[in-house]
């Protein structure tokens, strides 16, 4: 029983770590947000902007080889009300959404 237990648990540990590596996203890079006409650097999340999803479904984009690719998509989020006055970050000119 003990041998089986340790075999299973060792497999689970290795599988968990392997799965984490396998699903690792691309290395972190500068992110951009789209203001409707151009892409702007997104700043620091939680300080300059928040990723939320009232309307659009892409929060931030990554840039590589002249192409902007959706990085943090909002399609998975629960769409709810717009940010209110009580929202943590002050909405400034940098607002990823």
């Amino acid at each position: 029983m003990k041998k089986i237990k340790w075999t299973i648990l060792t497999f689970v540990v290795l599988f968990s770590i392997g799965a984490a590596f396998a699903t690792r996203p691309k290395p972190y890079q500068t992110l951009y947000w789209y203001n409707g006409s151009q892409y702007l650097p997104a700043g620091t999340m939680g300080l300059n902007y928040v990723c939320q999803t009232p309307s659009g479904n892409v929060c931030t984009y990554s840039y590589s080889g002249g192409v902007y690719t959706p990085y943090m998509t909002a399609s998975a989020y629960t769409p709810i009300a717009l940010t209110t006055e009580k929202a943590k970050p002050k909405p400034t000119e940098k607002k990823g959404n």
Partner: peptide, 12 residues
């Protein structure tokens, strides 16, 4: 909707 907005979630 206890918080003013819905954030994105965790890793992996």
């Amino acid at each position: 909707h206890f918080f003013p907005y819905v954030p994105c979630s965790c890793g992996g």
